[in-house]
Amino acid sequence: MRDFVFLEPRTMAEASGMLADHGDAARLLAGGTALVLLMRNRLASPSHVVYLGGVPDLDRIVIDDDGLRMGALATHAAIAAHPGIRARYPVIADTAGVVANPQIRNVATIGGNLCHGDPASDPPACLLALGARVRAVRGAAARDIALDDFFTDYYENALAPGEIVAEVFVPAPPPGARAAYTRFVTSAAESRPLVAVGVRLTLAGAACTEARIALGAVAPVPRRATRAETFLRGRTLTPDVVAEAASLAVADLDLVSDFRGSADYRRDVARVTVRRTLGRALGGAA
């Protein structure tokens, strides 16, 4: 690993300033499980590393009537174990609890996970289905970016130079909403998903009033299955309707092909995983 200047800001404004000063030569360090590995493999060789660990309260988790706010430095382990998240957003706790492995979950952060933008990961699809957004700050300025718009390509995001994700916000689910997340891994030894599916269904009686379906790990960025979502709206979710939605969800995907699986295999697995995840959200058997 090439050596670098290690910067330890005490405030977000100071951190933004440091990033802005050094431009592309600077990288932000949160838990480090992704960045340190990139640097060791010389896939990243920043001249300056800005470490956020000294900024107070950046790992805070707050739940109120509006929704859930997870500080960017909240670790996956902290999210998985948080009593309020387990009670009110169990799908988020469950998803955080399967990321990578226990040692990584103790260090890796939700902000780092989203900003790193590795497609083969669990939280992005789950949070996208739940309508999450990130709060990006730069100095005194702040803006919210919906996850729909946040991921732009492999390992790329919509942050402007000097912007830092301070918090991930998940809006409180509407009445009648139910959510599920499913990862498909190719073997018990594999820690990254071949396919990741998050769904949130809102029901009024037997009818579906809103469906959000997000697919991760199948394309360079996590995507909503908008055709399937539109198809489900207003319908009663019978097994046939759910199966049709699953087919629509994978119909126009531009799938990646890699060592975990070919594009054709991914399409089949994604279709089945969407069907099962909708079933799980409805409370049926997986």
């Binding site: 290690f6 340190v36 590995l37 060791r40 493999n41 470490y51 226990p102 040692q103 260090v107």
Partner: peptide, 26 residues
């Protein structure tokens, strides 16, 4: 040395972590 095997596991403030993926300064 790439965060996969766990041979380098140590505890930091009681939590187990991979010491090959942490900078000493962290």
């Amino acid at each position: 040395e790439e965060g996969v095997c766990g041979a380098c596991t140590v505890l930091v403030d009681g939590r187990h972590v991979r010491s090959c993926l942490l900078l000493a300064l962290q």
